[in-house]
Computed example of a mutant assay.
Amino acid sequence: MANFGVDTIFNIQNRKEFESLALKTFKFQYEHNTIYQTFCNHLNRSPKNVKGIIEIPFLPIQFFKSKQIVTATESPEIIFESSGTTGSSTSKHYVLDLNIYEKSYLKGFQHFYGPIEDYCILALLPSYLERQGSSLIYMADDMIKKSKHPASGFYLNNLKELKTTIEKLERSGTKTLLIGVSFALLDLIEQYRFTLKHAIIMETGGMKGRRKEIIRNELHTILKKGFGVNMIHSEYGMTELLSQAYSKGDGVFQCPPWMSVFTRDTENPLEILGVEKTGGINVIDLANINSCSFIATQDLGKTYKDDSFEVLGRFDHSDIRGCNLMAI
């Protein structure tokens, strides 16, 4: 384990503390993650010559498809696996300590929304429920249990029951979080219309092959009208990360204190861009202490001065341009 306690990660108070801990994490993972060390050596980067966080190498996310990305030799408590189209390879995240994941999503949610016990949690995640190994299902299931509300639960194809539950919660003035995959939320409002004042509607993105992909603004406009709300919230997470960023509207995301997003040049993946410039999204997630905290994703986006960010789409090709020359 790293030479700092896990609680240190979740008690970061400011940017200076984040950057200091990120550099310590880089040193730890360079020394204990052989895949990451080989990758860093390939780029001539090591704790000896990395002095700031933008100099830290970001591991291309597709390494999670072909390598076991871990910083220790213990057996994992759980293996989270991404969804994949037929015949495609999937990412696997070998999680050595589920307690870290649980702390991350619970403290992250509380940071933005307050205590989980204040909410009734309704999860409309059919594409995730239909397969094994989803980190989102693990998180939603635990949040449902910790909410302790009798109406909290998963909904698969029982949309009529979900409609009845939402309306009952609305009449009683109960704070409600409906978290759902985009196509399922659209399915719901095509059958039923709502006018909600006490509910947060949170989309997790993706049509999962069930519907034609549409741009976020169009999706949110349709959902706002269907649910009768002013804003659609969003969750940004993935199998390879143990933390989530949240948007309270307009697709602008904020990270919890132990997570940060940068953008990289699409032609030169080692170059970190300034704010308001479109590039590939790089994530530092310090909760990934036992795998790799420095991930170059396949998403395109831009960052802003207040450390918020937007997700603008995905790279056209499955391999991020420029990463082939960094392959091990």
Rank of each mutant, 00 (worst) to 15 (best):
V70W: 08
A72M: 10
I9H: 05
K148L: 15
P126A: 00
I295K: 05
I166C: 10
V181N: 06
M202K: 05
K148R: 12
R211Q: 10
S20C: 14
F39I: 05
M207C: 02
T221E: 15
F10D: 10
A140F: 01
N41T: 00
N290L: 09
L125V: 01
I200P: 08
F4W: 11
T239L: 05
G108F: 04
D307V: 01
H317L: 09
M143G: 11
I137Q: 12
N268G: 04
T38L: 15
G280P: 15
K146A: 12
I12A: 10
I53H: 11
H149G: 05
V283M: 08
L122M: 06
F253Q: 00
I100A: 07
V261S: 11
K145T: 14
L241N: 13
C255Q: 03
T38P: 11
Q13V: 11
L21H: 11
R131N: 11
N282F: 08
Y155P: 02
H32S: 14
L129I: 06
I179Q: 11
P150E: 09
Y304R: 03
A184M: 00
S172K: 14
F28C: 09
E117G: 13
Q37R: 03
D316Q: 05
N268A: 05
K51I: 02
I56C: 06
G228Q: 02
N99A: 10
T86F: 03
G228S: 04
H149I: 04
L223D: 06
L312F: 10
L169Y: 06
C292N: 01
S152I: 05
A199D: 12
M326C: 15
I12D: 12
Q110P: 14
G52H: 15
I56H: 03
N282V: 06
C120H: 04
S308M: 01
Q254R: 11
